[in-house]
Structure formats: structure tokens, C-alpha cells
């Protein structure tokens, strides 16, 4: 990590059940001891020793199947339920140790959250829903209205401000949800499977809009999904969860090229490698490159798919550059090898 993380979870545990307090008050030597104590007391472990950090402006995706504990982690970050053990640092302050009152202030200024089922208040109009967090922190009516209109425009719903949630389509409702979560100008943006309840076309559209928004807003994002393709499309980094634990985290190509186990491998199997992998992933680093006659020059962030199309004219070698400077070399056969690994 080059910069100081915006958000950091350190050995975070969430244990559900009546005896959870009892389990947490005991001293445990290691993680296995905690797990054993929790199970012995009939508790259910929602999140177990979760560690990760999110850099400023980074889009961090937590991905896992249902019941893997990804929503639990998100709710523990937001302190919607308090973590059993561990810390959640936001700008170096531990949220888990904070009083409800201080948390309220944090939520009013630094945090926004989008819910899977939109979480719109049915007796509020779209505008009132968006203005709700502003109202909570005591903004006056004129400011609220102005800001809410602004947000409505941001998500492309101009003119629908007076509609009630039941008068909006699913996609429109989630746009309102997104607008609401952004109304307080949060630094940390938490999205809990925001697009899972939408149909595929709308989902893709909103994913694109999210990326467009993020390119200007530069929030620090924790995004939950069960859809690996969505994770790959959006994420700077991905964490894969299973049974309450993070089993691997890294960039999409890290997961693709170096899966830690069969579980991760199974996940990445269907991913279109040509689209995900970039020249940077497969190049042979070299700084002194002679300009060969038939060589092609491409930036290192170019996907293999694009590189292949560019090579269609019979080019054998690519010179990989970073900000114009040559950093490595990719041969025609390297690309085929990279795809073939996937097939085996």
C-alpha cells in the first residue's frame, strides 16, 4: 500500500447468537480457539478474522455466495451491527469503539450506503428520500431541496422528484437510493448488492453509470456482489469470501493467474481472460528495447483481446509501454499461452 488507507478492517469478527458476548469476553489464544468457543456456545459465525484496507478513491469489491458473510462485513463497517471482535478504522479512527452518538455524526457526514432492496421510505417522495439524510443532520429546507435536486440530476432522474417509490421502476428506485447515499457527500461509499435486484440490461447500464460517477467522484468504495463478472468489471481489487473468511484478495488478474485454491479457481473459470488480463500481466519486463521493424507499441493496460485484434495484421511482437516509455515485451505466443492456462 503506497498511501494511508481510508478504511481498514483489522481482524474483524462478527458472532451471532445469545452467547456471543460471553464468547467475546473470554481470552482466546488464536482464531481457532475463538471459532471453537463460538460453536461450543451454539453461536453462528458471520465474519471471521476479516482483514482488508481500502485506499482513498479505491473501489474494493467483496464477492461471495449468499451466506458467505459479505453483507455481515459491510454492516459491521457501517456499524449497523457492532463487530464482536476487531477494529474498523476510518481515517485512523476506530468506529467499533465509537459511541452511537459519535457514529451518528460520522454517518451524517462521511458515510453513504446503498441497499439491495433500495430501502426507500414508502411515504416519502423521491426528493424527500434523497433529502432525508440532510434533514437528519439539520440542513434547512432550501439547502436540502437544492442538494436533492442536484443529486436527482446526477442520477438522471430530473423531473421525477415528486414521484413516490411505488411509482418508479426498480432501476429508477435504485437511482434514488444511489442519490440518497451520495447526498451527504460521503467519503466512504458502501454498496450492498445494489444491482442484484435489477434485470440484466438495467444492471449493466447502472454499472456503467457507477463507473462514470466514480471516475469524477473518487469515493472510497466497498461494493458487495455475488456476481464475479460484476466484480471484475468494477473492481480495483476484489476479496473473495467463503464461510465468513476472506480466502483471497487482489486484482482481478491476480485472482485469475494465481488462484489460491480450487474454490477461487472455480469462480474465475468462466471469466473471459482475454478481456480481464492486460499486457502488464504477461509481458517480459525489458527496458532496453530496439525498435524492431514489425513491432507494435501498446500501453500496458491494454487488454489481451485488444492486443490480439491489433496483431491481426501479422504482427509478432508488441512493445509494452507505460506512459510512453517502453517497459516490456510480449510475443504472439505469450498471449496464446495465457489463454491456454485457462483452459487446463
Amino acid at each position: 500500500m503506497s498511501s494511508i488507507p481510508k478504511l481498514e478492517c483489522r481482524s474483524l469478527w462478527k458472532i451471532f447468537g445469545q452467547a456471543s458476548d460471553k464468547v467475546c469476553q473470554q481470552n482466546h489464544d488464536n482464531n481457532d480457539a475463538i471459532t471453537k468457543a463460538a460453536i461450543d456456545h451454539g453461536c453462528i459465525i458471520g465474519a471471521s478474522d476479516v482483514n482488508f484496507s481500502v485506499a482513498p478513491g479505491e473501489l474494493f469489491v467483496i464477492m461471495g455466495l449468499s451466506g458467505s458473510g459479505k453483507s455481515t462485513v459491510l454492516r459491521s463497517i457501517a456499524q449497523l451491527h457492532r463487530p464482536s471482535i476487531g477494529q474498523v478504522f476510518l481515517d485512523g479512527e476506530d468506529l467499533a469503539a465509537m459511541s452511537e452518538k459519535d457514529l451518528m455524526e460520522i454517518r451524517r457526514r462521511k458515510m453513504g450506503m446503498v441497499f439491495q432492496n433500495f430501502g426507500l421510505v414508502p411515504h416519502f417522495t423521491a426528493l424527500e428520500n434523497i433529502a432525508f439524510p440532510l434533514k437528519m443532520r439539520g440542513e434547512n429546507a432550501a439547502t436540502r431541496r437544492q442538494k436533492a435536486e442536484e443529486m436527482l440530476q446526477l442520477v438522471g432522474l430530473e423531473g421525477r422528484g415528486q414521484s413516490y417509490p411505488h411509482e418508479l421502476s426498480g432501476g429508477q428506485q435504485q437511482r434514488v437510493g444511489i442519490a440518497r447515499s451520495l447526498a451527504v457527500d460521503p467519503e466512504v461509499w458502501l454498496l450492498d448488492e445494489p444491482f442484484s435486484a435489477l434485470d440484466p440490461l438495467i444492471r449493466r447500464q447502472l454499472q456503467d453509470e457507477l463507473l462514470a460517477l466514480q471516475s469524477t467522484l473518487k469515493k472510497s468504495i466497498v461494493f458487495i456482489t455475488h456476481d464475479f463478472a460484476e466484480a471484475v468489471k468494477l473492481a480495483d481489487r476484489i476479496a473473495i469470501m467463503r464461510d465468513g473468511k476472506i480466502i483471497q484478495q487482489g486484482s482481478a488478474s491476480d485472482l485469475l493467474l494465481h488462484p489460491v485454491d480450487d474454490y477461487v479457481r472455480a469462480f474465475v473459470e468462466d471469466v473471459p481472460r482475454l478481456q480481464v488480463l492486460t499486457l502488464a500481466n504477461i509481458m517480459t519486463p525489458k527496458t532496453n528495447i530496439k525498435a524492431a521493424s514489425k513491432a507494435l507499441t501498446l500501453d500496458q493496460s491494454t487488454s489481451l483481446e485488444k492486443a490480439m485484434l491489433a496483431m491481426a495484421g501479422g504482427v509478432k511482437n508488441i512493445i509494452v509501454t507505460d506512459q510512453g516509455k517502453p517497459v516490456g515485451e510480449v510475443k504472439h505466443s505469450d498471449i496464446f499461452n495465457a489463454v491456454q492456462i485457462a483452459e487446463t
Binding site: 455524526e105 441497499f115 447515499s181 458502501l190
Partner: peptide, 16 residues
């Protein structure tokens, strides 16, 4: 339950 979470994340006090 959703609405409780929405209220909390929006920074509502229990009275609000």
C-alpha cells in the same frame, strides 16, 4: 428492518 437500517445509516437519532 430495511427502514431501520436506512434511518441509522442516514444518521437519524432514535427520536428522529
Amino acid at each position: 428492518h430495511d427502514l431501520y437500517e436506512v434511518a441509522n445509516i442516514s444518521g437519524a437519532s432514535s427520536w428522529q
